[in-house]
């Protein structure tokens, strides 16, 4: 038997689907605070917020994944991702509908994602995992934290 490497994932809801990101990349979860918009930027870039003196951009993941935009409510949260491995880590805030759970998945239980059509860029998907009845889409934190990919340069 091979050693199974288990990793923890934070999951959140987006338009009824559950997504997961590597928990090691999650710096914190914040309630929505007022966002300052940036001029002439795509809709999914909501603007920037002040996170204890650091200015970080906010991306609406619904709109980034070309889903129907939702009016923000008191459940809406911002998941702050931070690339821990980089020397000069990039920080970004993702607006999601709600955070859900923390699950442990082993490498083996993650399956390759089938083709979703073009609703979500394939590059963001790391794989699929199931927890009981639920199917969770695991996102690739490396591409999420890649400026070129995330901001669609």
């Amino acid at each position: 038997m091979m050693n199974e490497i288990e990793q923890e994932y934070l999951t959140f809801l987006l338009d009824g689907e559950e997504f997961g990101v590597d928990i090691l990349c999650v710096q914190e979860i914040r309630v929505l605070s007022p966002i300052t918009t940036l001029p002439n930027k795509p809709d999914y870039i909501k603007g920037v917020i002040n996170l204890r003196g650091v200015i970080i951009p906010i991306v609406d993941l619904r709109e980034r994944f070309a889903k129907q935009a939702l009016k923000y409510n008191d459940q809406t949260v911002i998941v702050i991702l931070r690339d821990q491995t980089a020397i000069k880590p990039m920080v970004v805030g993702l607006v999601v509908d709600a955070v859900s759970e923390v699950y442990k998945f082993s490498d083996k239980s993650i399956r390759e994602a089938p083709d979703f059509g073009n609703k979500i860029d394939r590059c963001f998907i790391q794989g699929l995992a199931s927890h009981g009845e639920k199917l969770i889409i695991l996102l690739n934190s490396q591409t999420l934290l890649n400026q070129d990919e995330l901001y669609h340069l």
Binding site: L38, P39, K41, V48, V54, I55, M90, Q147, Y151, L153
Partner: peptide, 14 residues
């Protein structure tokens, strides 16, 4: 003055 480029990119006019 805080930099926008630290976590984001140059924004025209800003």
């Amino acid at each position: 003055i805080k930099s926008l480029q630290d976590n984001y990119q140059q924004v025209d006019g800003i």
